[in-house]
């Protein structure tokens, strides 16, 4: 009987704790989103963007991402020229 009471207590405490933690997940998630929207202002990259030489923006993004991965973030795309 004691074990059963303890098991019922665990049901109550366990479910409440899990709900509280996942409520915290939503609160933390929302707060981080709100704070980053309000206070994070990344440097404008348009001026730093390499000359695309007529390559469209999506392809340029793919090239930059590929260079990023291959060079572990150390490589920089200076310019892209179309031949």
């Amino acid at each position: 009987m004691d074990s059963l009471n303890q098991a019922l207590g665990l049901l109550l405490i366990g479910m409440i704790t899990v709900f509280i933690v996942l409520w915290l997940v939503t609160v933390i998630g929302t707060s981080v989103i709100e704070l980053s929207n309000r206070f994070y202002h990344p440097k404008a990259k348009d001026n730093d963007a390499p000359p695309t030489g007529g390559v469209d923006k999506e392809k340029m993004a793919v090239i930059v991402a590929a260079v990023n991965v291959l060079t572990n973030g150390k490589g920089v795309v200076d310019s892209v020229e179309k031949k």
Binding site: M15, V18, F19, L22, W23, V25, T26, G29, T30
Partner: peptide, 8 residues
């Protein structure tokens, strides 16, 4: 984020 509750 709301859907996270169903994980509980």
């Amino acid at each position: 984020l709301k859907l996270a509750y169903f994980g509980a």
